[in-house]
Design a protein around this nucleic acid. Structure first.
Length: 635
RNA sequence: GCCAGCGUAGCUCAGUGGUAGAGCAGCUGAUUCGUAAUCAGCAGGUCGUCGGUUCAACCCCGACCGCUGGCUCCA
């Protein structure tokens, strides 16, 4: 097996490292840089090992372990060390791939027995040993054929499969200790560079992400430049766990998902019901103000409708069906069909367009059991759905208006977001010109508003391209909520027309769009975003009135009555408990205001207003009421 | 749907092959109190469901249901 060792040749010549010019007398970049926090270098924009050859004259930028690239390298190297540990402990495992990912890394193995939690501990221990040995990561170059026979001999079929799909003549391998892996690199110079890592979980994962392939075992872990950062990340995971909407949903009595009723179905309890109503009232206002008409369609529609729409061919596995009086009916997974019928109910003129139909539509989809997740993935959910029918020349303006609407609404909740345009997928219908026109319209609308966006090649809906909006919650996680989809298929399938100024029939363009997406999902994201402490206008209970002793019970009740008269959502706590206990309970319920009334307040006809953050002040009830009213967002 | 783990009181969790416990919540009583838990007593579970092994199963085995973390898919 002929190999070329990288880093053997170091001709004497000057190089520039982070702007400093140095001579290359020393044989190792690592020795020249003399910084244990530097894990790799970037030469001419390309990431390279510290042990790479230097010809002289290069301009080199060092990559520190706490930079984004540095973290990726550390994590990638940690995954190799983990694979080495796994192979040492479980020689029957076959390594496949092990990249760095967003917050860590994973490595997939094919193995008969499964990895247990105890195994993870053993692997971690072994990794500690390997790191203590501080073995070098050595890069080797091999031509592809040699590499294939090498891995064949080693009995690593997955590596052979990867190699057989690589076009390059030569490939690189990395070895540390006994472990050799096919890998582009770069890696840290030696295992001792790994200062802080943790294995997190085991999970199944399909080979090459295809569900027709064998399921492998994936071990997830993470690594950071130092122990402190790792600890911060683990704390962050803990924080996320505390914010879990399923946990808060139960604790705040917002919703339940009952095994008896069935999986993936949400039951709103009084406080969740109030939250949802507030959100929906807000949505109605937002839509009416922007020229939408509210409509309602039935939940079950004749099978024939779904045949015409193409759902029978493209969406059947996700639908539920029922039979009534010998007729097939489909339970709606989308709201568009009724809206189309409303459009078709009479002859439309070009002057009528655009028509914007809005529905808080409850849809039912048969989601695979394994994907259900609290409010974030359910089998029944309500979309703040709308369909806009317009002339082609109105398309950009309509898309722009929707984007503005998304911006306005997200600003109310304080979400940041990213936009993504998805283009034509392989399996799709419609002409090339239509796709081009629609995709361009979507992009032009975004460009016109100077909004940056990513392009997601081939990820559009089968009937048209789309803009997806991913919102970022308070702890940085992303959720897909809003989506704007262009559709020229359904108007054709349902033979929709309008009469143009020329007296001829023309086909309208249809936009499907949601702003919050699914009300359920959005509520789930809201819960986690605010950690249950909703803004005043969205809080199911805005204030709890609490008395110090029985002597003020009548006063507390009177206050609560007044609040209700002024539409402030108030509860009253006159239980025979200490004020500290009542405050504790309201805090746990994340109620924005506590109105504390003792003898003093009763005598002066005022209240002490205690906020969630502990700040407090005395105020007249009228002042407090206007304070609550002022919290209502205007959009 | 697939892989792995899990399922004990309303919640959080102990527990052992010989028919179950704690804290909080609940109920009752006492306490009338000024900013995150007053004290005492009481009550509460066919140990997810169904089958099997066993003299005996919450515990062992199997199937099913559900949940959790992933994968695939998705609002």
């Amino acid at each position: 097996m002929p190999t070329i060792f990288y880093g053997d040749i170091m001709p004497q010549n000057n190089i520039t490292i982070d702007g400093r010019e140095l001579s290359t007398e020393m044989t190792d970049l690592k020795d020249m840089i003399k910084d244990p926090n530097v894990v790799a270098v970037r030469v001419d924009g390309e990431l390279k090992d510290l042990s790479g050859p230097v010809n002289g004259g290069e301009v080199i930028e060092t990559i520190r372990s706490d930079s984004q690239s540095g973290l990726e390298i550390i994590r990638h190297s940690t995954s190799h060390i983990m694979a080495e540990a796994v192979m040492a402990l479980f020689p029957d495992a076959r390594p496949t791939i092990g990249p760095s990912i967003e917050d860590g890394f994973y490595y997939d193995f094919d193995r008969e027995d499964t990895f247990s939690v105890e195994d993870l501990e053993r692997i971690e221990q072994k990794m500690d040993e390997l790191i203590a040995l501080d073995t070098l990561f050595e890069r080797k170059i091999m031509n592809r054929q040699e590499a294939i026979s090498y891995f064949q001999e080693k009995g690593e079929p997955y590596k052979v499969e990867i190699l057989s799909k690589i076009d390059d003549e030569v490939v690189s391998l990395y070895q540390q200790g006994d472990f050799v892996d096919l890998c582009r690199g770069p890696h840290v110079p030696s295992t001792g560079y790994i200062k802080a890592f943790k294995l997190l979980s085991v999970a199944g994962a399909y080979w090459r992400g295809d569900e027709r392939n064998k399921m492998l075992q994936r071990i997830y872990g993470t690594a950071f430049s130092n122990k402190k950062e790792l600890k911060q990340y683990l704390n962050f995971l803990e924080e996320a766990r505390k914010r879990d909407h399923r946990r808060l949903g139960r604790e705040l009595e917002l919703f339940m998902i009952s095994d008896e009723v069935g999986p993936g179905m949400v039951i709103y309890m009084p406080k969740g019901g109030m939250l949802r109503t507030l959100l929906e009232d807000f949505e109605k206002k937002v839509h009416f103000k922007r020229g939408y008409d509210i409509v309602y369609g039935p939940s079950i529609l004749r099978g024939k409708m779904w045949e015409t729409s193409g759902h029978m061919d493209n969406y059947k596995e996700n639908m539920y069906f029922t039979e009534l009086e010998g007729q097939l009916y489909g339970i709606k997974p989308m709201n568009c069909l009724s809206h189309i019928l409303i459009y078709k109910n009479k002859v439309r003129s070009y002057r009528d367009l655009p028509l914007r139909y809005f529905e808080l539509g409850n849809v039912t989809r048969h989601e695979k059991s394994g994907v259900l997740h609290g409010l974030l993935r359910t089998r029944q959910f309500t979309q703040d759905d709308a369909h806009i029918f317009c002339r082609p020349d109105q398309l950009i303006d309509e898309v722009s208006a929707i984007i503005e609407m998304v911006e306005d609404v997200m600003a109310v909740f304080g979400f940041e977001y990213e936009m993504e345009v998805s283009t034509r997928p392989e399996k799709s219908i419609g002409s090339e010109e239509d796709w081009e026109m629609a995709t361009k319209a979507l992009m032009d609308a975004l460009k016109g508003k100077d909004l940056p966006f990513d392009i997601n090649e081939g990820d559009g809906a089968f009937y048209g391209p789309k803009i997806d909006v991913k919102i970022k919650d308070a702890i940085g996680r992303q959720w897909q909520c809003a989506t704007i989809q262009c559709d020229f298929t359904l108007p054709a399938r349902f033979d929709m027309n309008y009469i143009g100024s020329d007296g001829q029939k023309h086909r309208p363009v249809m936009l499907h769009r949601v702003i919050l997406g699914s009300i359920e999902r959005f509520i789930g994201v809201l819960i986690e975003h605010f950690a249950g402490a909703f803004p005043v206008w969205l809080s199911p209970v805005q204030a709890v009135v609490m008395n110090i002793t029985d002597a003020q019970a009548d006063y507390a009740l009177r206050i609560a009555e007044r609040l209700k008269e002024f539409d402030v959502r108030a509860e009253v706590d006159t239980r025979n408990e200490k004020i500290g206990f009542k405050i504790r309970e309201s805090r746990l319920q994340k109620v924005p205001y506590m109105l504390i009334v003792g003898d003093k307040e009763k005598a002066e006809d005022i209240v002490t207003v205690r906020e969630r953050n502990g700040n407090q002040q005395t105020a007249t009830l009228d002042d407090f009421i206007s304070m609550v009213k002022d919290a209502q967002p205007s959009v």
